[in-house]
Write a protein that binds this DNA or RNA. Structure first.
Lengths: 205, 205
DNA sequence: TGTACATCAGTGAACGCGCGTTCACTGATGTAC
DNA sequence: TGTACATCAGTGAACGCGCGTTCACTGATGTAC
């Protein structure tokens, strides 16, 4: 798979990788097809051998992200089983870990304006990933005293929001919004307090 | 303050308003100076009578946002006094209310890449707004049993993250991330569970 | 193994476009007398 | 009140730039015989 010569060898993936780096650096709208091509050592026109255009390239980057994301969430969930609580905490951690490890993918997925309904595959993958979180929330709900049990969808929305908020505000080089705490600790403790509020963790644990 | 004639009358503010609308619609990087000028009924060159350039215009939009934001947070805090709990909940609600009512400002402030350290005034206003949240968290901490008391800064970070997450994921027309719950309810209940976890709200309230 | 040929992945030039910014200018407004 | 003039907020043309996209092309690769 040499990179020299007239034919690239694996240009398609090289373009996706370049796009991911650029999206991570400059944001989704700052990303340009021409620059991605340049970074892959190729003329902008060459991109059209592999993608329909700019949007299509971003969508592929997002798709790969959803794929990894769904797998990670699945794995985290299973690792926590059979304990509903462990599964739930584990998926929350996996969310942050994904955002930290694949920031380009994360941005392509959640900030690029690419609709999840662009293709059936995208919709499926996204549904799978978030479905894991929701399933974990449902199982968790079964352990909550009914009188203080919010809808499971709400619980998963709360956790999703907290994860996303921590990522956006504290896990990225956001200007001027540094926190004295590592994002992992922030999320861990935030979810911990939340779960205690649901009556799922002993008050002094 | 007629809009007709050679002289605009209040072009500076008209440009800021146009910028806010465009930023809200197209995101911070999709926003163009030329379009803002056009929307204000004026040549792009006219912008330079009032601003140093594109960045400067965005920064002014953000500045006005921080001003309103800081005032709203202040007001919400005071409204809750002397109860620490009421103040805390009130500022959380004010955060979301601001994001909902001034989406253009919100984006200019938190997603435009404008650094809060761009000018001393920006830094001051931003510090003031977030300082309110932190002060509320500190007062709240005093009512938490010491053995389960996280640092006050952490509490305010948690709430900020949850607010921001709810705004980004559920309060905007994000594609495909609709929730069956109104964002206000989501935030209210999320903060409620969280506060219960801190031991600040009776378990069955 | 060697040659002819089809396929395919790239080139490079060109397009029209909208961008941010500059410049010399001019028309409208406000002020002094 | 009327006139002369300074100030100032706008114009409009021009700039260089990088963008996404198209097109006819060509060089490299793989296959058939």
């Amino acid at each position: 798979m040499s990179k020299r010569g007239y034919h690239h060898g694996n240009l398609r993936q090289a373009l996706v990788d370049a796009a991911l780096t650029l999206i991570e650096e400059k944001g989704p709208t700052g990303f340009t097809l021409s620059e991605a091509a340049k970074q892959a050592g190729v003329t902008p026109a060459a991109v059209y051998r592999h993608f329909e255009g700019r949007e299509d390239l971003i969508a592929e980057a997002a798709r790969q992200g959803y794929e990894v994301f769904a797998d990670l969430m699945d794995y985290a969930y299973k690792k926590g089983q059979p304990s509903a609580l462990a599964s739930f905490e584990s998926t929350g951690r996996a969310y942050l870990a994904f955002a930290r490890k694949y920031p380009g993918h994360y941005v392509a997925m959640f900030e690029s304006g690419i609709s999840v309904n662009r293709t059936p595959e995208l919709a499926m993958l996204s549904g799978r990933a978030l479905g894991v979180l929701e399933r974990a929330a449902i199982e968790l709900s079964a352990h909550i005293p009914p009188d203080r049990r919010p809808p499971a969808q709400m619980v998963s929305a709360h956790i999703w929001a907290m994860c996303h908020g921590v990522v956006e505000l504290f896990a990225r080089g956001s200007p001027g919004t540094k926190s004295p705490f590592p994002p992992e600790d922030l999320l861990e403790s935030g979810i911990g307090v939340y779960l205690r509020g649901l009556g799922l963790v002993p008050p002094d644990a």
